[in-house]
Design a protein around this nucleic acid. Structure first.
Lengths: 165, 165
DNA sequence: AAGATAAGTCAGCCTTGTTGACATTCCAAG
DNA sequence: CTTGGAATGTCAACAAGGCTGACTTATCTT
């Protein structure tokens, strides 16, 4: 077993192995977004709306600036998406209490309902993949993904699940 | 150890765990594409050009139809990208020998050079992530990604590295 | 009072995806 | 040998969702 692993250690960084990893990421990401995309296509929404809904659901009361940092887009781009979500009554934007320049974003019941629908679909696929691969594979999966992130994004990835200060 | 794993088995499918996996995919994919994107931004090319170059490099002589299936876009969309690559002398499109309706796509020296540059950047990040996470984590990573693909895409993922018939 | 910050908005541009319609070329089956 | 259908390419029009740059308004901080 140790020999197998040392053998692997010599092999798993070949260009061919790396290329396979790259292609696996490409094809898997397609699957990862396929189910929500199908649902969104029936409405006037796209992947950008899904991302906003996801992270607002995750951090209710988050500010626009914070969301910008997480999503990594310009405020003009986010604003376009956010505006339609507020207009359609999925997201509520309230003036900040301590700093009134800020806007705190939360989902309405309607917004929560859509977020749930999208999330359910995506989690179902994730759950099936996790179940198929098993707990040890999942641990490895998470390790590699984390190592692949930019340091900035890694910070945000961890920050997103910290309890409020 | 067995207990730890059975404990994990109970926990690793919670909604929270699944959400973390979803977010890990999101942030990691950003890192995954960041380096090639930076290079492409300096030219008149985008991610779509990179994908075409990658799979043509991988399967020299592949047909347009085959590429369409792999990339999962419409022929109009692929054609636009392919046309600029041919015009710019990065890709050569030759009439098929056995079936002259088909076009066999190959990279020119210039195309190979750009593909190498992009690939080098992407593989460098992949290599660093693999190294950091270790061989066992990589095996798990690959397992979960494969389980996440649509069956169709999984077929293509395997087919891409079969030797020519 | 001045400067910095948060948010929003307008205008315009690019890439990359989509539909639909249509022409050409060619293989293969009748 | 004709004809149906497949593979390819192309035109036009459109939409989502990125981007830059310029600017306003409100509010906080110094």
């Amino acid at each position: 077993m140790a020999e197998v692993h040392s053998g692997e250690s010599l092999l798993f960084l070949t260009d061919e192995q790396l290329r396979q990893g790259i292609e696996a990421m490409f094809f898997a990401y397609r699957g990862f977004t396929a189910d929500p995309d199908r649902i969104l296509a029936t409405m006037a929404y796209g992947r950008a709306h899904h991302r906003a809904l996801h992270f607002i659901a995750r951090r209710p009361g988050t500010t626009v600036n914070n969301l910008l940092g997480i999503l990594g887009v310009t405020k003009q781009s986010l604003n376009r998406v956010l505006r339609t979500l507020v207009e359609d009554g999925l997201v509520e934007s309230r003036q900040g209490k301590s700093d009134r320049r800020e806007r705190n974003l939360t989902l309405t019941d309607k917004g929560r309902a859509l977020e749930q629908t999208l999330s359910d679909a995506q989690r179902a696929r994730m759950r099936a993949a996790y179940r198929k691969a098993g707990p040890e594979a999942v641990a490895g999966f998470r390790q590699v993904l984390e190592a692949m992130m930019d340091p900035d994004m890694r910070r945000k990835y961890h920050a997103i699940r910290e309890t409020d200060k």
